[in-house]
Amino acid sequence: MDFTSRMAALLGAFRRERNGAVADSMRFYGKSYGLNYGVSLPTLRTLARAGGTDHEFAKYLYLQDVRCLRLAAFHIADPARLIPAEFAFWGGGLLNSELAEEAAFALLSRSEALPALFEAWTAPGAPCLEQYAALMAAARAPHPSPEWIVPAVEAVRRAASDDAPAARLLAQGAVALLTAIGSLNDENRLAVLRAAGSLEALPAAEYLRGELAWRLEA
């Protein structure tokens, strides 16, 4: 069965699970989808995983302007085949925060290329959604590195005085990652709190510090 036929079959399965109420209630940072059936994430994940991994098919689905197909792509892709040469492909398709979060959960955090991706996607000038996806993926890593503390804080610093919605989004990603790192041991906890304390008194920074204060209480 070719990719088009397989996509049609998968889309038919998603269409049977459509939920207009879910679609109407969705809120996310970024662009809307061309087509959205409102399939719940648990259902979408189950249907996407049913056929196993197929990296090339996943990339084909990711090019479609259909919510359920783009999200399914992250579950069908093979994390072992995520290499630096593909970073631009996956990053370029992150239209909104929902896609960034699902990419982090299903694909990015499971790849051995995560350290390289984190470095590339948190670099100055990287798109907001790539930075957010990298932060969320790193937060899910089995052994989050203390070396990620400074890039996480700097991502918030760069955005804090610019785009308020983007800054809040990056602060949320930084909270997830810094909590994961700071929870490993007391040395990391103190390093996280010091780095967060170096941020200027802007809303995103205050949110970050406030969240970390109670999440990392001694």
Results as ranks from 00 to 15, higher is better:
Leu99Cys: 13
Phe118Lys: 03
Asp163Cys: 09
Glu200Ser: 15
Thr122Ser: 12
Glu98Cys: 07
Glu206Phe: 08
Asn36Ile: 11
Leu202Gly: 02
Glu98Gln: 13
Leu177Arg: 00
Phe105Thr: 14
Pro84His: 10
Glu102Asp: 14
Ser25Met: 09
Ala80Gln: 15
Ala174Glu: 07
Glu119Tyr: 01
Leu212Met: 08
Glu119Ser: 12
Leu169Val: 15
Glu56Trp: 10
Leu94Ile: 09
Asp186Leu: 06
Ala77Asp: 00
Arg67Gly: 00
Tyr132Ser: 03
Ala133Asn: 11
Glu86Val: 11
Ala176Pro: 01
Thr179Val: 07
Ala201Met: 15
Ala204Phe: 07
Pro146Val: 06
Ala21Ile: 05
Pro144Cys: 05
Ala138Pro: 11
Gly182Asn: 04
Asp78Cys: 09
Pro79Met: 03
Lys31Ile: 03
Gly30Glu: 06
Arg189Glu: 09
Ala204Thr: 00
Asn188Trp: 12
Ala48Phe: 02
Ala50Leu: 12
Ala160Phe: 06
Leu44Asp: 01
Arg81Trp: 05
Ala196Lys: 04
Tyr29Ser: 05
Leu212Asn: 04
Arg194Cys: 13
Trp148Phe: 13
Phe105Gln: 12
Ala13Tyr: 02
Trp214Glu: 15
Gly52Asp: 12
Ala88His: 10
Tyr29Ala: 06
Leu82Thr: 01
Glu102Pro: 05
Gly20Tyr: 08
Phe57Gln: 10
Leu63Thr: 04
Arg16Met: 12
Gly210Thr: 09
Glu112Val: 07
Phe89Pro: 02
Met1Trp: 10
Glu112Leu: 11
Leu114Gly: 00
Asp78His: 03
Ala73Arg: 00
Gly210Cys: 09
Ala195Asn: 14
Glu86Asn: 10
Pro142Gln: 08
Pro84Met: 08
Ala138Trp: 07
Phe87Met: 03
Ala191Trp: 05
Met1Tyr: 08
Ala155Leu: 05
Arg27Ile: 11
Phe87Val: 08
Cys128Ala: 12
Leu11Arg: 04
Ala103Met: 11
Gly93Ser: 03
Ala73Cys: 04
Ile149Lys: 05
Trp148Cys: 06
Ser5Asn: 14
Leu69Phe: 01
Ala171Gln: 01
Ala164Gln: 15
Arg194Gln: 14
Tyr29Trp: 12
Lys31Asn: 04
Arg189Met: 07
Trp148Gln: 13
Trp90Phe: 04
Gln131Phe: 09
Arg67Cys: 00
Arg49Met: 14
Pro165His: 11
Leu95Asn: 05
Ala103Gly: 11
Ser198Glu: 15
Leu202Lys: 14
Thr46His: 12
Leu41Phe: 06
Met136Asn: 07
